[in-house]
């Protein structure tokens, strides 16, 4: 990759890390558009537990991975909520970049960027995958 592309990549990642690591702590704590319409019809106490009424949110069940150390964008063992959310966001950005970038890198065309001819290994991969 060219030098300019590296610069753009690093700059973009820094912006994402800043947003997820710092700005995320200023995000609105209110339920989002989907959640709020599912809560319509129910009443809630200060801890967000349903106290009465009838609404779709009542049917909500525990998440399969509610025990994840990163559940709800926190970080187990870190009591400071700002630090927990920030670290969780930073880890999420790096993880998403690694997983996404890794998968896209594996799935990319293997022939050179500007050569029009199909590369041998691409055909080879297809044959191998089919066999």
């Amino acid at each position: 990759m060219k030098k300019r592309s590296w610069g753009f990549l690093v700059g973009g990642l820094l912006v994402a890390l800043l947003l997820a690591g710092v700005v995320s702590n200023f995000a609105s704590p209110h339920p989002d558009g989907l959640d709020s319409s599912l809560r319509a019809g129910c009443t809630f106490d200060a801890d967000d537990n349903i106290t009465g009424g009838s609404c779709p949110a009542q049917a909500g069940r525990e998440h399969e991975l509610a025990d994840s150390p990163f559940a709800d964008y926190g970080l187990r063992g870190i009591d400071n909520p700002y630090l927990a959310t920030g670290l969780s966001g930073v880890i999420g950005v790096l993880l998403t970049f690694a997983v996404g970038g890794g998968l896209f890198w594996l799935a990319r065309r293997r022939n050179g960027p500007d050569t029009g001819e199909p590369a041998g290994d691409r055909t080879g991969t297809r044959v191998g995958a089919a066999g």
């Binding site: 990759m1 060219k2 592309s5 753009f8 990549l9 973009g12 990642l13 994402a16 950005v93 790096l94 998403t96 970049f97 690694a98 997983v99 996404g100 970038g101 890794g102 896209f104 890198w105 799935a107 990319r108 960027p113």
Partner: peptide
């Protein structure tokens, strides 16, 4: 070129 950029978009 696009593969790492796509990772950045996801992040």
């Amino acid at each position: 070129r696009l593969a790492p950029m796509a990772g950045l978009v996801a992040a």
